[in-house]
């Protein structure tokens, strides 16, 4: 799912600024709830923290909270209408997608991002998420035994590790596994090491963002 992380508290406070008296904190009940960044629990805790802060600096601010199932489908945004309209500002704790959809739905209001949206990842441990996919638009997991070098190699190399792979870790950060070692180990286990001798030509990046922001239409369903 999409993984995000709450922005630094002081960054949020600076972003909110001095010009508002009422604030809505809007949460999202899907990806960012699972990644523990923007669900109802975080929304309510943040409201309480900001209340504590504004009280401490002597500012009179009214903070409301609301969490909808998703902020990337318009019907859910409709549920927020009253609250969005009666507050000066909305801080959205959804991913970057949700924030932008709010702007589209309510163009006369201001929406600020409370999260830094980061990557598509899996829950690798309770409270830990790791990047697995960058959405390159042309999945080649079949060629790499189900382990993606495009997302998980710091240099997106397709023909083997660089010279910086040390003790199974990436030169960029010793916490990062060298994905090529993982691919090699898996290939060896499956007895398919010879498949790694194939020369992989340069990737067509046009299916990725490099080809421009993307749109997807399902012909079966779409009606202009």
């Amino acid at each position: 799912m999409i993984v995000g992380e709450q922005k630094d508290l002081n960054e949020i406070i600076d972003m909110l600024g001095d010009d508002f008296d009422s604030l809505l904190i809007a949460g999202c009940g899907t990806c960012v709830t699972v990644s523990m960044a923007g669900g109802e629990k975080e929304v309510e805790a943040l409201a309480e923290i900001l209340n504590m802060h504004y009280k401490n600096i002597g500012r009179d601010v009214k903070i409301e909270t609301a969490t909808v199932k998703r902020q990337c489908d318009f019907e859910f945004l409709d549920e927020l209408e009253e609250q969005v309209k009666r507050n000066d500002l909305t801080l959205s704790l959804a991913c970057g997608v949700g924030v932008q959809q709010l702007v589209e739905r309510y163009p006369d209001k201001i929406f600020l991002p409370g999260l830094n949206t980061t990557f598509y990842g899996a829950t690798t441990d309770t409270g830990e998420w790791s990047e697995r996919c960058i959405g390159c638009g042309n999945c080649v997991l079949d060629q790499y035994f189900g382990i993606c070098p495009i997302a998980r190699c710091s240099k997106s190399l397709l023909n083997g590790p660089c010279g910086g792979s040390q003790d199974g870790k990436c030169e960029v950060d010793p916490e990062i596994d060298c994905v090529w070692e993982l691919i090699y180990n898996r290939a060896k286990k499956l007895g398919k090491l010879d498949e790694l001798t194939k020369l992989e030509p340069p990737k067509d990046w046009s299916t990725y963002r490099d080809g421009g922001p993307r749109k997807l239409i399902n012909e079966e369903v779409y009606n202009d």
Partner: peptide
């Protein structure tokens, strides 16, 4: 000198 040896050899051949 890098590891895994076999993988580096594959890369060298490539």
């Amino acid at each position: 000198f890098a590891d895994p040896f076999e993988m580096q050899m594959i890369k060298f051949s490539k």
